[in-house]
Amino acid sequence: MLIKNGSFDKKWLMDKRKIRDLICTKLMLIITIIVSILFFLIFLILLSKSSLILGSESITDLLFSSNWNPSNGNFGYFPVIVGTIIVTGLSLIIAIPISLLSAIFIAEYAPRKIRKILRPFLDVLAGVPSVVFGLCAFLFLVPLVRDFIAPFFGIESTGLCLFTASITLAVMVFPIIISLCVEAFSSIPLELKEASLSVGATKWETVKKVIFRATAPSIISAILLGFGRAFGETIAVNMVVGGIPKVPSSLFAPTETLPSLIASKYGELMSIPKSESALMFGALVLFIVVLIFNLLGLILLRNAKKRWKL
């Protein structure tokens, strides 16, 4: 009787385990499905919200007109898009070489002790909130650009400009690219480095010709992640970019980026349906660009992997 009871308990326990297993698995499935269609949902909402402006203005006007005047109902996004591209592009041009060289230093050249010290510093830099970046850029870079750098090139500038914004973004991107690249570089088998070194290549030749090649996919995705961060950065850029939706005439001219524009105008324009819709269109453009770059990155990655069968 007792034994029977025991086995019954055991069986019931088994069933309970199985049921719990089933419930948890299905729950996870549901969550996963919701999250993975989230980006689609965001796309739909942005699209439906911007349908108002898309109905009344042609999409080419919105994208390629330079006339930005919300109070008259003119929403030409061209200067803002150009501003976004230049600010992001310039920041990456600054950030990529510096980050890659730093990553190589940390992963390949620095002695272990220094490497250990450097890691937490990078983590701290990665953790600095963007609003603090903006504040520091305003305090440090803006006067520097206004009083020294811009006059050096013979240009008068308030310091709130494209150049300042790009530098700020570059610093924000450093820790992202560096830590991902360090990870990639250190995951290379030691023997591969040895193979290159033992035919008499110098360390730098090994880095240049073997390590960069072997980690190309990871470097690409690190750069893309950095791009994503820079492209979408809102607050820090908003604080130093100048906020004037004009195609910049020089490095030291003020301009505006898409996210920064949304942040500064949404509050005041959200009560006017057409303006709100126009800003939603801006968000939609932002979203689509991010999407395209992600897919592009994926294709690049696939190709690189296939090419060297990594």
């Binding site: 591969l192 193979a195 070194l197 033992s198 035919v199 008499g200 073997v210």
Partner: peptide, 14 residues
């Protein structure tokens, strides 16, 4: 290192 070629345990083609 140029004078001393190396053949490692597992092949590591570049």
């Amino acid at each position: 290192r140029k004078k001393m070629g190396l053949l490692s345990q597992k092949p590591y083609p570049l």
